[in-house]
Design a protein around this nucleic acid. Structure first.
Length: 409
RNA sequence: GGACAGGUGGCCGAGUGGUUAAAGGCAGCAGACUGUAAAUCUGCCCGCGCAAGCGUACGCUAGUUCGAAUCUAGCCCUGUCCA
């Protein structure tokens, strides 16, 4: 829509990352003339981020692609408090060891998508525990507390919504926004950071940091948020029945990761291609315009590209080959889950539970009763039926999408 | 510390002594239709069991009762107001 001078804003704009910017013109001018160090904060509540954070990660990648410096801020300190943003209730406290282990684990995904190092545009990862941990309470109140009015803090969505919904908010959580604001000011002062990015729900927190930087140091800082990413059916990205779609390999197999993208809604394809792949825009426009069943080809490209970025080229190729063999060929692929069956065979019920297609025996039986269980493509109608793959691998399926391999132990 | 209102299955939310494994909605799973999409319709949706049935479950604990998610007491937690 706008004619940006800087390649950074142009790229972010074209690809649909921008929801709000504090002062787009000034930021554009800055990015056009110098390297802008920009950061995004991430929580360390789990050993892996999920695809709900992928937009943010990709935004750091875009920052680097356009010649700027991405800074990954791990919330080692703020995770000890818990972000009240969003409707979650208070978060359980995590031990220091857990948080540190989580940060180390989360780092793996960043090293795939960003180039780390000491150069001017190399990515760096910092942990806010390093400075927040040293901050004394009195010092915090004096330095930072004076710049926040409670009046204003109470108007922030993160606080207001809790109060309106009559849900508790502890004083601890209430302080979160102060610390997050302080992060920005700290990074600005010590690393020359000028830009903070984040999801649209972080707008208030980001603006707080900008204010704080201006009041304490007189520095002009910028903020940019991404639109809240939902899938076309309105649900939040990254959450499926089976759980979150984790970015780390050890948290979610590449096959399931690939399948997530392959199964996305038709309406999401173009948007996702722009946000989550490096494909050129004209190529995306072509893929996006495919009609009817043709759009499936675009979904395969999407799945391949995202998997390649997040999991590596081998993972993407194997997943695609598995999909081809399994869905088009009705056969078996290397990525399918495998269950080793002891000699003599087992019941179909046990096989379904064993391979993870059913959470309990009862659920497996219901699946069979509903006609959703198949062996080598043939519907299983008898819940007492047994399988013995000793004569050759057997394909076991739950519904049309979940397939697995039964193999002799 | 006091008064009042609350704490029900993944979530929301009915239910105030038995017919309640607990209405309804959402989410989820499967079937039909399709394109590994969406929408729609249908079935399922605590665990074990072939089944009859058994075991768990309505904040926690102890009671009353033939029988409790529902009544009583104590405790824990949350909100609102008062101090």
């Amino acid at each position: 829509m706008s004619n940006y001078q800087s390649s950074l804003l142009r790229l972010l704009d074209e690809r649909g990352y921008i929801h709000q910017v504090t002062d787009a013109a000034a930021l554009d001018a800055l990015a056009a003339k110098q390297v802008v160090p920009g950061y995004i904060g991430f929580d360390a509540t789990a050993p892996s981020l999920h695809i709900g954070s992928l937009v943010q990660i990709m935004m750091l990648r875009r920052l680097q692609q356009t010649g700027h410096k991405p800074i990954v801020l791990m919330g080692g300190g703020t995770t000890r408090i818990g972000d009240p943003t969003g409707r979650d209730e208070s978060r359980k406290m995590l031990s220091d060891e857990t948080i540190d282990a989580n940060i180390a684990s989360i780092r793996t995904i960043f090293s795939r998508l960003l180039a780390f190092g000491d150069g001017p545009t190399d990515a760096v990862m910092v942990n806010n525990h390093d400075w927040l941990g040293k901050l004394g309470y009195i010092q915090l109140l004096q330095e930072v507390g004076t710049h926040f009015t409670v009046n204003r803090m109470l108007t922030f969505d993160s606080v207001r919504l809790r109060l309106e919904r009559e849900q508790p908010m502890t004083f601890l959580e209430f302080n979160y926004m102060i610390l997050q604001g302080y992060d920005y000011r700290h990074l600005a002062k010590n690393m020359g950071v000028r830009l903070q990015m984040g999801g649209s729900d972080q707008w208030g927190n980001i603006v707080n940091g900008i204010e704080l930087g201006r009041r304490m140091d007189g520095t002009e800082l910028f903020g940019l948020t991404t639109p809240l990413l939902t899938t076309a059916d309105g649900s939040k990205m990254g959450k499926t029945a089976a759980g979150a779609v984790w970015l780390n390999e050890d948290a979610l197999p590449a096959w399931d990761f690939w399948q997530y993208w392959r199964n996305c809604d038709d309406r999401d394809v173009g948007r996702f291609l722009r946000l989550f792949t490096d494909l050129p825009l004209d190529e995306i426009a072509r893929l996006e315009s495919l009609e009817g069943g043709e759009i499936n080809a675009a979904k395969v490209v999407l799945a391949n590209e995202v998997t390649r970025l997040c999991r590596g080229g081998d993972a993407a190729r194997t997943a695609e080959a598995t999909a081809q063999a399994t869905f088009a060929g009705g056969g078996l692929g290397a990525d399918l889950p495998v269950l080793a069956v002891p000699a003599g065979g087992i019941t179909v019920v046990d096989a379904l539970v064993g391979i993870g297609f059913a959470a309990s025996r009862g659920e497996a039986k219901r699946l069979i009763a509903g006609g959703g269980a198949r062996l080598d493509g043939e519907v299983v109608t008898d819940e007492h039926r047994t399988v013995d793959p000793s004569g050759g691998e057997v394909r076991i399926s739950s519904g049309k999408k979940k397939h697995g391999v039964l193999r002799p132990a």
